[in-house]
Amino acid sequence: MTGSKIVFLYSLFAAISIGANLGTQKVFLITWPLLYAVPLSVLTGTIVGLAAKFILDKIWIFKFRHRDLAHGLRNFILYATMGLGTTAIFWGFEFGADRLFYTESARLGGGALGLTMGYLVKYHLDKKFVFS
């Protein structure tokens, strides 16, 4: 696959994952307007976005096949572990924007910016450590 095709697909999949993440947060907040709604919505969105991105990256970007279910589970755990640092970037921007501006649009905008920056870092980590 050419470099430009990888950049296009990875960007497309990041956008899909961002949409899944932020969309899940919005749905969560509508259906769970209770205590700790924002942190729980961010956590739920992160899990949904992570799962979607893993499947898309595994199949289309890295063309990776698991030997068996155990290998697939270990690979997903490694993928998620590599995402801890990038999730810190994402959450830092999302919660930072929330604390600075106190609006949902600023929080979601900060989340989108943090996710974009995190995905740039994550691609290189996944290429070197997860799907090598």
Rank of each mutant, 00 (worst) to 15 (best):
M1E: 12
G3C: 06
S4Y: 09
K5C: 06
V7K: 10
L9S: 01
Y10M: 11
A15M: 10
A15P: 09
S17Y: 11
S17G: 12
S17K: 09
I18F: 13
I18L: 14
G19Q: 00
A20V: 15
N21E: 04
N21A: 04
T24Y: 14
P39T: 07
P39E: 14
L40M: 11
S41Y: 09
G45L: 05
G45M: 03
G49S: 04
G49K: 01
K53F: 12
I55W: 13
I55C: 05
I59E: 05
W60K: 02
I61G: 07
F64R: 08
F64I: 07
R67Y: 09
A70W: 10
A70T: 12
H71A: 08
L73R: 05
N75W: 09
A80T: 07
A80K: 02
T81G: 04
L84C: 12
G85Y: 10
I89P: 03
E94L: 14
F95H: 09
A97G: 06
D98M: 08
Y102N: 08
T103K: 01
E104K: 11
S105H: 03
S105G: 07
A106V: 05
A106N: 05
L108K: 15
G110W: 01
A112G: 13
A112T: 10
M117Q: 03
H124S: 11
H124R: 14
H124W: 14
S132I: 06
